[in-house]
Design a protein around this nucleic acid. Structure first.
Lengths: 142, 142
DNA sequence: CAAAATCCATTTGCATACGAACAAGTTCCG
DNA sequence: CGGAACTTGTTCGTATGCAAATGGATTTTG
């Protein structure tokens, strides 16, 4: 068969980029249902902050794979919610010191269990063995 | 050891949502390097339009997993680039008819090979067998 | 037929994301 | 010491992505 259009052997629905976007969308839906008050990005920053302890803004961004412009907005919104506090570092006056407030630590503690449920529900279509395989392969694509 | 903080058994770097975000970031970097003139979303809409043929705005959005608000912006930008054209449907005056222009069809034809390279490079860290496994599992998480 | 429900597109608001450019502070090195 | 190089945070512009509200058009249903 002749065809005057470009070949149709490119099927969007089979491309890894499209599938990643769809899987991310589904995960986002699950996340919003179980943790309504925080976005995945905000929770990631808060969780990493509780995991690492006090740090600086850009360092927290690097630890959570956010660039400087992105982490700034996340920090601003978490501060607006009263979950973190920022102070200028006296030793290096460029640095913005970031730490979790008591409310932030408590919020993380409360959301932590939900977050584990979110991960479980996201992976629920797969068997336990498949989940482990998937996470292993996905880790190697980062 | 006692611990006054929430348990540290939540490790951000092991959660599927975080890994999905990182993998998407890496894919985006590869995409931007090989197809500088289009975003993944714009290319997805253009590719699906060439795959399906002329359709309506919302239908194209559903076919590419974009909601009405998102597909509108994508359509606007593709039209600004001259790659697609829109017309009001005479039969159903709500509908916005969308079709690829000759320039759009040509742009898709030119980018199609690059897009396949992007998928290949994104999956490059995995063996051929692992790639097939990963795509199968990822498909089931959408 | 008329009301209700549905669908289509648009708009607004909010929240990521990244590139680029910038100012200010710090460190490195000649 | 002093300029170059780097780091840190900020701002701007562009582009998704979703929720919610709106207005207009069409279809379904009582």
């Amino acid at each position: 068969m002749t065809n005057d259009c470009p070949p149709h052997d490119y099927l969007l629905d089979a491309q890894v980029g499209f599938l990643l976007r769809r899987a991310t969308q589904r995960h986002l839906t699950i996340f919003a249902a179980l943790i309504p008050g925080l976005t995945p990005t905000q929770f990631a920053a808060l969780a990493k902050l509780c995991e690492l302890g006090p740090t600086t803004q850009n360092a927290l961004g690097r630890a959570t794979a956010m660039d400087a412009a992105t982490i700034k907005g996340v920090i601003d919104r978490l501060r607006d919610k009263g979950l973190i506090a920022t102070t200028r570092d006296a030793e290096d006056r460029r640095r913005l010191f970031v730490e979790a407030t008591p409310a932030g630590t408590e919020a993380f503690g409360a959301a932590r269990t939900k977050a584990l449920e979110i991960s479980a529900e996201t992976l629920a279509p797969l068997s336990a063995f498949e989940q482990a395989t998937f996470l292993d392969l996905l880790t190697r694509l980062t």
